[in-house]
Design a protein around this nucleic acid. Sequence first.
DNA 1: TTGAAACATTCTTTTGAAGGAATATTCCTT
DNA 2: AAGGAATATTCCTTCAAAAGAATGTTTCAA
Lengths: 123, 123
Amino acid sequence: MSGDIPDMGMTTLGALAEPNRLNIVELLREGPLTVGEIAERLGLRQPQASKHLKVLSENGIVEVKAEANRRIYRLRPEPFQALDAWVKSFQRVMEERYDNLEDYLRELQGQNRPEQMHENKEE
Amino acid sequence: MSGDIPDMGMTTLGALAEPNRLNIVELLREGPLTVGEIAERLGLRQPQASKHLKVLSENGIVEVKAEANRRIYRLRPEPFQALDAWVKSFQRVMEERYDNLEDYLRELQGQNRPEQMHENKEE
DNA sequence: TTGAAACATTCTTTTGAAGGAATATTCCTT
DNA sequence: AAGGAATATTCCTTCAAAAGAATGTTTCAA
C-alpha cells in the first residue's frame, strides 16, 4: 500500500537479487552466450534458464539476438550505468553528513524540551 | 542447487530489492532517523518498520544507536562502496568487449562446421 | 509505582516467486 | 516430409518472505 518506487529502478535490484540470475549476469560478463550454454555452465535446467533470462530481459538487464535456432543473450550497459549513478549519489551525501548523528540527537532533545511549561501537551 | 554465490554480496542486493526497504534507505540518505519517524514518513506500521530495519541491519546496510527510549538508525557506507566496486568492474569489462557478439557467432559456426566431414556426430 | 511512549518480537495468514515436469514452437538437416 | 535440436511456455507444487495483529520489553515521567 502506498508503494512509492523512489527514483531508481527498483526493478533492476529485484532482478539481480536472485542468486541464479546474478550468476547469469556474472557469466555473461565474459561475453554473449546461448541459453544452452548458460544452463550448462551454471547447472541449470533449460526451462529455468529461459525463465530467468526472461526476467532479466524484461528488466532491461539483458538483450537477445535470435540466430536461427539459438538465442544469444548479452548484457546491456544501461542498468549498470544507472546503478552506478545511484550508488554515487549516495556516497556523496553520506560523506558530507556522516556524523551529524549528534545534530539529530540535539534535534530530538529540542522537541522534548519541557522548559518552563507545565503540562502543556501538544499532541 | 549448486548455488554459487559469486563474488559480491548477494545479500546486499536482496535486502535492497524490497520496495519498503529501498524507501527506508532513500529516506535515511537525508540523515539518521528513529524508527517512529521512518514509519510515519513512509506510512508504515511500526512493527513492519522495525522488521525491515532489522533486515537492513543484519545485512550491514544500516546501524543502530540506542538513545534511551529511541533507536536511531543510519546508513553505513561499506555496502555502497562494495556495490560501487562491483558495478565498476562490470562497466570496464563491458566497454572492452561490447561487440564481440560477432566473434561469438563465428564461434558457433565453427562448432557446426560440417566442412568436409560427413556424419561424424560427436556427442 | 503506575502509566505511557518507543521499539522489538512472536505467531499466523497471505502472496508471490522459483522449481519441476511436460508440452509447444521454431528452425535446421537429411 | 520427418525428425531432432534449441528454446519458450504452461501448469502445478512448494516455499519463503511480507503483512497483520497482538504482546513483550525498556525507559522515562509524574
